[in-house]
Nucleic acid binder design. Structure first.
Lengths: 236, 236
DNA sequence: TACCTTTCGCGTACAGTGTTCGCGAACGAC
DNA sequence: GTCGTTCGCGAACACTGTACGCGAAAGGTA
């Protein structure tokens, strides 16, 4: 009973958060849960953006102190991972139909909707792709839909990753077309076009907005078209 | 001469940084330049990662104080935009050959190399896609290579964006396969596979690493294959 | 009931961050 | 030399993520 670890009980920091027990079975019971904290963080991010998700503000939203959160989460990045995975629970996964292309397109369409609900998601998905319990369920579903597809396992994983990347990029572009930074960017492009060099870009600016047809497609249709093309490209 | 703006001389913050004059023509001449500051920031990011790029540390690398940087840059985000655009100067753009597919693939291959040189680039490209003077040159080159392609202008822009997104994601995955977070993730996936549910994922883990052939392709060949597939997908 | 053990809540503190203010110094033009 | 203007930058402010350590609270056991 002499050589003991510190009070924290030998916390295994080198394990992903979903492998660390949520709380101990002995001692004083916890007043909160990871799910509760995650929900508060998600709501805060939905309302005020990812930068607003600071430990202090999340704690305040729960009516507690910042240091308390560290009983549930080792670091802020852990909390971000929890947020990402929690959104994967919003998928409604029906059984595969046998048409893998349609099934994956349905998944992608849901991904887009979820990302539109949580505009902070694309940045997280792209910069720290993490698979938690819910994300793993999603991946299993995708692999299930691709069960009869002749591609290699690596190729299927690649398709999953690329579809995610493309969806995230698409949504980010879709969401940011009206914010201040994008307007500044547009002004600059006009400036470049007017300067005379870059004739191709100049031609771009004078052409109509989305001139595929007389009637521009809805954003949903447009996304389905893009995702479908990427899909057929990656999965021969 | 009564109603005048503040001392800063009516700085137009609502303009993108490349439209703001670098320095005034009257008064004391500046001791540094945006290019110098950007180079220091890039070098710092290459060496210690994007989080190390703080105003204080960049200033210290230049032997000056943090507040001085604000004479050249309105905000840290401006500096990040400058860094992004500065990497676009590393492309070596040859004249289009007439084979648009090969030309775009060459651009993508260079993009990958540049991102490998600057591991912080993918995150920036994806989360704050910005076109500065160098980025505009690159876009012009891409549009030039696609001049004879029958797709609409919007479709070509989309191809450019998707190629960038896919390249960034690919490089990020390529770079992060050995870092601590990825190892944790792998351990968790093993855990999930061992738990019994998720049989498809379990099958994934037991299959060989990249089993397309007996000899796994080089990373460069692999990337060319992926980018090529996405390209043919997006540009019919 | 009285301990004893273990965990929980969280005030406080520390090192760092982006950014603003305002002043002295330095320069070009006249 | 003097004026107008800009530059460099120390100091300060409002934050941030996180570590420490203490008091309180809840079992389990005697």
């Amino acid at each position: 009973m002499a050589a003991r670890q510190a009070a924290q009980g030998g916390r295994q920091d080198e394990l992903v958060i979903w492998m660390r027990p949520e709380q101990a079975s002995v001692g004083r019971p916890a007043e909160r849960s990871r799910a509760e904290i995650t929900a508060a963080a998600v709501e805060l991010a939905d309302r005020e953006g990812l930068d607003a998700v600071s430990m202090r503000r999340v704690a305040a939203a729960l009516g507690t102190g910042a240091a308390s959160l560290y009983r549930y989460v080792a670091t802020r990045d852990d909390l971000l991972d929890l947020m990402t995975d929690s959104t994967a629970a919003e998928y409604e996964l029906a059984a595969p139909t046998g048409d893998w292309h349609a099934d994956l397109l349905a998944v992608a369409a849901q991904a887009r909707r979820i990302m539109l609900r949580h505009p902070w998601l694309p940045a997280l998905v792209v910069t720290r792709p993490t698979l938690g319990p819910q994300g793993v369920d999603l991946l299993e579903h995708v692999l299930d839909a691709l069960a009869d597809h002749p591609a290699s396992a690596a190729r299927k994983l690649e398709a999953f990753a690329m579809l995610n990347a493309v969806t995230a990029q698409f949504v980010q572009h879709e969401v940011s077309t009206t914010d201040a930074a994008s307007l500044r960017q547009a002004v600059y492009l006009q400036h470049v076009a007017a300067a005379g060099h870059h004739p191709r870009i100049a031609a771009l600016m004078t052409s109509p907005g989305v001139p595929d047809e007389a009637a521009p497609p809805s954003a949903d249709d447009h996304f389905r078209a893009v995702a479908g093309r990427v899909l057929t490209g990656v999965l021969s």
